[in-house]
Design a protein around this nucleic acid. Structure first.
Lengths: 148, 148
DNA sequence: CTTAAAACCTATTGACATACTAGGAAACTA
DNA sequence: TAGTTTCCTAGTATGTCAATAGGTTTTAAG
């Protein structure tokens, strides 16, 4: 499955924020940049997407940074992907029901919509909390997520 | 889910071939073009991908065209997608296990590989025959597929 | 009040893929 | 031999990606 670095880095950054914001502290772009090996300038372009979607909030100035704007249990992974790329979980253009192109509509219904549905239901069924928890197990770092 | 027209048209064309090749007859690019409303010239670029993957065979000259090169029950939908775009069912670049970037590897494992796995297992589990059958029900056209 | 740090905003750029169009060559059949 | 079909290659316009760059604004700390 093709995923752009924008989406890839966005998920990674959000996960990093969730993992590293202890008791309400914020995580700066440069911290994420260093930890995850992503260009800070590029990150500064990606993080606003998550902010605009209401998933994180930002604090300017010294000591500022980003933090989750709500509990990780209330964020669905589908929300995250939608925030970063509104086509990734979206059905392809629906073929108009004009009597013509019946086969195209059938293919759409029995293949593309099904595949899309798989992606959407999987990501809707998983919260950021659940996801970060799994990642944290693997990373085995200390973590004190802004939680539950 | 973002799908290129190349993939979209390719699936549509193969389905059209399966539906319209009666008892071993072939289907020409221009027939598909007219029935499905796809540029013939563009189709001529797409169909060779299916041929190269061994899914269809071609016959040049008058009365020629394309036909399935094996039974539709023996073609998996995953084969079709792979033939048209080798990234669509492929995992994203694996993050090297260098001790660094543990989080990136975890995200890969718990999100991208899972999503990819969903797409792959669904399409591997569905034969072209099954798929065309569903479409044919909807289209309700006469059909005599090269079958079973 | 000054300073440094942080987010924010906008522009630009090179690379790449897509989605075709076009023109003809080769093969085959009647 | 003629006409039909696939096949091959090239070109092109468009858009998106993946950054890089330079600066502005906000804010907290000293």
């Amino acid at each position: 499955m093709k995923v752009s670095t924008r989406v890839e880095y966005g998920v990674l950054a959000l996960t990093d924020i969730a993992l590293h914001s202890e008791n309400g502290s914020s995580v700066s772009a440069i911290e994420i940049s260093k930890r995850q090996g992503i260009s800070k300038k590029y990150l500064e372009q990606i993080l606003p997407l998550l902010k605009q979607a209401g998933l994180i909030k930002a604090q300017k100035g010294l000591g500022g940074g980003y933090m989750l704007s709500c509990k990780a249990t209330n964020i669905k992974m589908s929300d995250v992907l939608d925030a970063l790329d509104n086509t990734i979980l979206e059905d392809i253009d629906n073929v108009p029901a004009d009597g013509q192109r019946e086969l195209a509509r059938a293919v759409n219904e029995f293949l593309w919509e099904k595949l899309n549905g798989l992606l959407r239901s999987f990501t809707e069924g998983m919260s950021l909390f659940e996801f970060v928890q799994k990642c944290a197990d693997r990373v085995a770092d200390g973590w004190d997520m802004y939680v539950i």
